[in-house]
Amino acid sequence: MNFRLSRIQFFLLLFIMQSGSSFFSFPSPFITATGRDAWLIFLVAGVLHYLLLLFYERYYQRFTIGPFVGWLYKGYWLFIAVTYLAYIDYTLAVWGFPKTPQFIVLAALVSVSLYANLSRAETIINLSVILIPLIFIFVIFLQFAWDDLTWTNIFPIGESTEKEWLIGLLKAQVAFIGIELYLFFRKHVDVKEEIKGFPLFVYQMLWFSFFFFSVLITLLYFTLAGIQAIPEPLLYILKSQELTFVERIDLFFLYIWMIWSIVTVTILSFSALYVHRLHANEHQKRDTIIWHVLLVFLPLFFLSKKYIEILNDVVIYVHLLFSVLIPFIVIIGSRRKKK
C-alpha cells in the first residue's frame, strides 16, 4: 500500500487512535486504582509515554516485520477492536439505546469502516479531520462544570503506596494504546517534514494535556467514593450540566463519541489490513469484508459487564506486549541482522 502522510496527518491519526480507544473509559478505573494521587501518577506516566515516543523515533527504521509478527499484530488489533467495540456497544446500550438490538448498533458502527477501507487510503487518513471541531466542543462543554469543581479534592498528596503507584502506572497504559502505530506509519511521513525534536514534543504535550485534563476534572468533580460508583464520569459530568438549549448534553456527546469510535475502528482496521497487505496482496476486497464481519460478530460474545471488565483488564498486558516487548525484540533482531 503506497501512501504519503504529512506531519499533521500522522499525528492526528495517532492522536485519534490513542484517544478514541480509551478517553471515556480511562479516568474511572485509573483513579479508583490510584486514589487522590492519580494526577501525580499520570505526570510520571506522561514521562514514560514521551520516552517511548523517543525510542520509537530513534529506531522506527529498524522495525521491519515478517509475516509471523504481522499476523501477531493483526491478532492484537482485532483484539483491541473487539474490546473497544464491545465496550462502546455496552455503554451505548446503557446510556442511549437500551432497546435497540446490539448487533444493529455494531453493524452501523462497523459499516463506515468497511466503506472507508474499501476506498482509497486517503479517505481514512482524512476521516480524522471531522473530529477536530467536535473534540474542541467536547472540551469546552466540560468547562461548564467549573463551578462544581472542588479543588481540595486533589489533596493531600503522597498518600498512595508503592503498590498503588505500580498499579496506577499499569492502568495508565490504557491511554497509551495505539502508540504502536507510530512504528508502522512513521516511514510514510514526508521526508521533508521534521518529526524529531519540537514537533514530537508538541504531540506529547497534546496527548498529555488531553488525558491529564480528563483525570483532573474527574478528580475535582467527584469524591473518591463517587468515582467508584460511576463508570463513565465524563459522560456523567455532561449529563449533570443544565443548559438552556439542550436537555441531555450527554446524549449529544455520546453521538460525538460514537463518531470518534467509528473513526478509531476505521484506523484500527486500516492498520490491520495495511500489515496484511504487506505479505498477502491478493483478495484485498474479500479480506476486508471478512475482517469487518469479524468486527460485527466477535464483540457480541462480550457484551456484559463481566466480560467488559475482563477485557479492559487484559488489554493493558496485551498492549505492553505489542507496544514495548515485541517492538524491542524486532528492533534488536534487525540490529543484529544488520551487523
Binding site: P98, T100, I104, S111, Y115
Partner: peptide, 13 residues
C-alpha cells in the same frame, strides 16, 4: 445504506 442504518436505532428506542 450506511447513513440510513443510523436512523434505525430510533425504531426501537
Amino acid at each position: 445504506f450506511i447513513a440510513c442504518s443510523f436512523l434505525l436505532v430510533g425504531c426501537w428506542d
